[in-house]
Design a protein around this nucleic acid. Sequence first.
DNA 1: TGTCCACTGGAAGGGAGGGCTT
DNA 2: AAGCCCTCCCTTCCAGTGGACA
Length: 411
Amino acid sequence: MGEKDIFNTLLSTKLLFKDKEVIRSSYIPENLPHRKKEIANLASIFVSALRGETPSNVFIYGKTGTGKTAVAKYVGNELLKKGKELGKYVSSVYINCEIVDTEYGILSNIGNSVIKNWDERIPFTGWPMEKVYDKLKEEIEKQRGVTIIVLDEIDKLVSKSGDDVLYVLSRMNTDLKNAKASIIGISNDLRFTELLDVRVKSSMGEEEMIFPPYNATQLQDILKERAKLAFNENALDDSVIPLCAALAAQEHGDARRALDLLRVSGEIAERDESQKITETHVRKAQNKIEIDRVSEVIRTLPIHSKMILMSIILNREIGQEILTTGEAYDTYKEICKKANISPLSQRRVADLISELDMLGVINARLISYGRGGRTREISLSVSVKDTKNVLETDEVLKSVSKYKPSKQVKL
DNA sequence: TGTCCACTGGAAGGGAGGGCTT
DNA sequence: AAGCCCTCCCTTCCAGTGGACA
């Protein structure tokens, strides 16, 4: 009897998913619906690589989940294939600048992707920049072809480490004799070129493309396409795809979100041992995705950020919904003392508060109290209970979670 | 109309930590 | 082992500022 149950479970899970990989947003499908124009456009720029000329550098703009990365990778792959076919050397490197965000990191990563010999690789730290650059140039030169460099989330790179790397890279072509390099910069932020040096701006932005967000109908097409491959027949209720599309369209027209919704719905249905994915599963998925995101963010926060967040929560528990930077800092100092941690400077804490704001955990808006000075008003933008639960999984934070901040005296 | 508060946000720099080179 | 080099996390210093109030 027990055996039968085991098999039943296995069978019912098999009924839903055929190939889960396909609905991960990192998967690059054969067919990208509603991006024909963009693909053609990018291809027309890069075709010169096959003629042995240097393709223009390109900036691609668009919100998250508009297919920028997918299109860039797709065209890159096709280009490699065609290059092989025609005997032209083309290679491509993909770097996500949110992960690799230093000058050294970028150059060494590009270098290492071109270097085949393991013991010639550029170490991840230790070399002077100039040496890294020389090595990179030498290796690209050896290729005697075109190297396409894709820098995803390039705006993050510029805001963290400035545009020096981009200057170096854009200048590289003039140093190369037998080979060429061209750059695709992908950015979420339309205005990020404002931060660039004029020289970098003109040499990098020879071509610009803007990817519009998908609307609900287009999202449905994307989901249908993938669902065919990912799910078994009849695994989906008819209303599931339209609902996923509609919810994602409301957000930002974000295809990644739509795909995540569909996948997580499937996973939830699977766990429920349901025969079909239904609207209910999608609603649950919507909820789960947001909660998971927030608790993951909070769990992985550095200790001082956690202490700041705790300060905000503790104040809220005594009825202070809104804090100024100074007030938050006072409580923070008190609980640091209690936990035997040396507090950071207020300047540093102000930066951490900005980070928390950007992560969407708190709301911090700059306001002026006139003579009362200028500061930020901080409030929690996630659930107190859930947040506190996650924070308390950390022993240090747990030790201060009962603390009552002294009431702030407003003048 | 000017003052002046409580910060903000930029800049510079230190020092610890990774690791290479000689 | 001593001396470089790059990055990260912080501190210190400071000019700049929106707007209530005198």
